[in-house]
Design a protein around this nucleic acid. Structure first.
Length: 490
DNA sequence: ATGTCC
């Protein structure tokens, strides 16, 4: 294999390019604080970018955001755009380049209340943990009739509200209005079964529900436009499509992977004239039956995730109302999908192009000038929700005010892992971590000790550095730093 | 990420 290091070029502040070479059909780019950090990181991630840039129809650059790390096929933090008009049937659509947790994402709520006025936060952590079920079991979810599940899969966030289960004040304040086009043919019986009982559950790993305080506002004008102020109580809910989305990805990845056989150090498709370097990037042309089936099922799973975050929001709001023994004034700041593929129009080398933009652990960060944004975001750019780790906090960012950024309007989605889960388990002293969090005023309700060790702050890159690099690269700008007060994790 | 192996 050609060494990508021989093809590295600086592209600007905090952006490094990998020039097209070998099987690549387009260039790649990585966002990072400095070249040394990128070059000394896990070399498997740049190799995966090179592989993705070899997929049929790949256009622009294949990007790795500042929080990227090695993943299945494409790095987490990867952005891949493919041309709808490439070849006979269009460019590649790859389930592995979206990821297993379809429409994993973040909902942010704002409360008309100061964070310091939350009574007995330790007790609230236990209370919230009781109402927001977490862990891998999926227990504690809403039991949906088959008819109601279909409604959720077709309509997304608004369906949760229709069923009286989900908090939605205005669907315009959700990315894609909380709904993608869905076709249920590609959703297997097993996927439906897994979805029937897990709506309203958090999951495990880096998923969480948090009450946070707005610690520091960087962009006062934008914060004000979104109704946010220092000291305010806000919430972030980070969850996805649970077992249903995982099953949809598994089904379609397996189906597509079986269509490729080993050839010349890569994989050849049985009918389409395609060669790909990594079977995990198994893909089908945008206008093929396989891609249409996947995208329809992906849309259904995405809708399940939008609805899930709406139900979790309602459960959190109810917990807060029970806790404070009063009604609570709240509003939605935004809801982002950070594992998704979407049809979007972009200008590439001066030419308009309809493409499939795969964002895997990358947040859309559209400019205020984009047609798809609601009036509240026209002057500011799209809100970009960047959950960090449980000790350091999270960031609220904004897309550019006017022009689409170079990464197909994308930004980072979190802090990004620094240690593997195994390394974190080995290194982290859980009792000491608990003491540290308590001393920092973070009230935690967690599941397993193992999960906690894997999610310790030291297992993640410093989110402030990731956000700085993202801003330097011109992808999004900082609006406010948020610090955790109450954390529920699987 | 994931009823952490159909």
């Amino acid at each position: 294999m050609t060494d990508w290091r021989d093809h590295v070029e600086p592209l600007g502040p905090s952006v490094i390019g990998i020039k097209k070479h070998g099987h690549m059909v387009t260039d790649a780019a990585l966002v990072g604080t400095d070249l040394k950090t990128v070059l000394s990181g896990d070399e498997r991630a740049p190799e995966q970018l090179v592989n993705a840039a070899s997929l049929p129809g790949a256009v622009g650059r294949v990007w790795a955001m500042a929080d990227h790390h090695f993943g299945y096929g494409l790095p987490i933090g990867g952005v891949l755009a493919t041309d709808h008009d490439a070849g006979e049937l269009g460019g590649a659509v790859s389930p592995g380049a979206v990821g297993f947790d379809i429409n994993c994402g973040v909902r942010m709520l704002a409360f008309d209340m100061d964070a310091d006025d939350l009574p007995d936060p330790a007790k609230f952590a236990r209370r919230l943990g009781g109402r927001v079920p977490s862990g891998t079991s999926g227990r504690g979810g809403v039991d949906l009739t088959s008819r109601d599940l279909m409604h959720v899969l077709e309509e997304g966030a608004s369906a949760a509200a229709d069923l009286g289960l989900g908090a939605v004040d205005d669907v315009l304040l959700l990315e894609s209005r909380g709904r993608l086009d869905a076709e249920l043919e590609g959703v297997s019986q097993r996927a439906l079964e897994r979805g029937a009982t897990s709506l309203g559950t958090l999951g495990s790993g880096n998923h969480f529900a948090e009450l946070q305080a707005v610690e520091h506002v960087v962009d006062a004008e934008t914060a004000e436009a979104w109704g946010l102020y220092e000291g305010q109580l806000v919430a972030m809910i980070h969850s996805g499509s649970r077992g249903l989305g995982h099953q949809v990805c598994t089904d379609h990845v397996r189906h597509l992977e079986r269509q490729f056989t080993s050839e010349d150090g890569g994989w050849r498709h049985e009918t389409y004239d395609w060669w790909i370097p990594d079977r995990q990037l198994a893909a089908a042309p945008r206008h093929s039956p396989e891609a249409e089936a996947y995208l329809g099922a992906m849309g259904a799973a995405a809708n399940y995730a939008f609805a899930n975050r709406a139900v979790l929001s309602q459960r959190l709001i109810t917990a807060l109302e029970v806790h404070t023994r009063s009604s609570v004034e709240w509003s939605t700041v935004y809801d982002v999908a950070h594992n998704i593929a979407k049809d979007e129009e972009h200008v590439i080398d001066g030419k308009r192009c309809t493409c499939s933009v795969h964002r895997k652990g990358a947040t859309r960060a559209f400019p205020g000038s984009h047609d798809g944004l609601c009036p509240e975001h026209k002057a500011t750019g799209q809100p970009v929700l960047v959950p960090g780790d449980m000790g350091t906090g999270s960031w609220l960012m904004a897309g550019p005010k006017t022009a689409m950024n170079a990464a197909f309007g994308s930004s980072c989605h979190g802090a990004g892992r620094r240690l593997s889960r195994a390394a974190a388990r080995k290194q982290v002293d859980v009792p000491a971590l608990m003491e540290r969090l308590t001393a920092a005023g973070v009230h935690l309700k967690h599941g397993t000790e193992r999960g906690l060790a894997e999610e310790a702050p030291e297992a993640y890159k410093p989110v402030d550095d990731v956000v700085d690099a993202t801003e330097e690269a011109g992808l999004a700008r900082r609006v406010a730093k948020l610090v955790p007060r109450v954390v529920v994790k699987g």
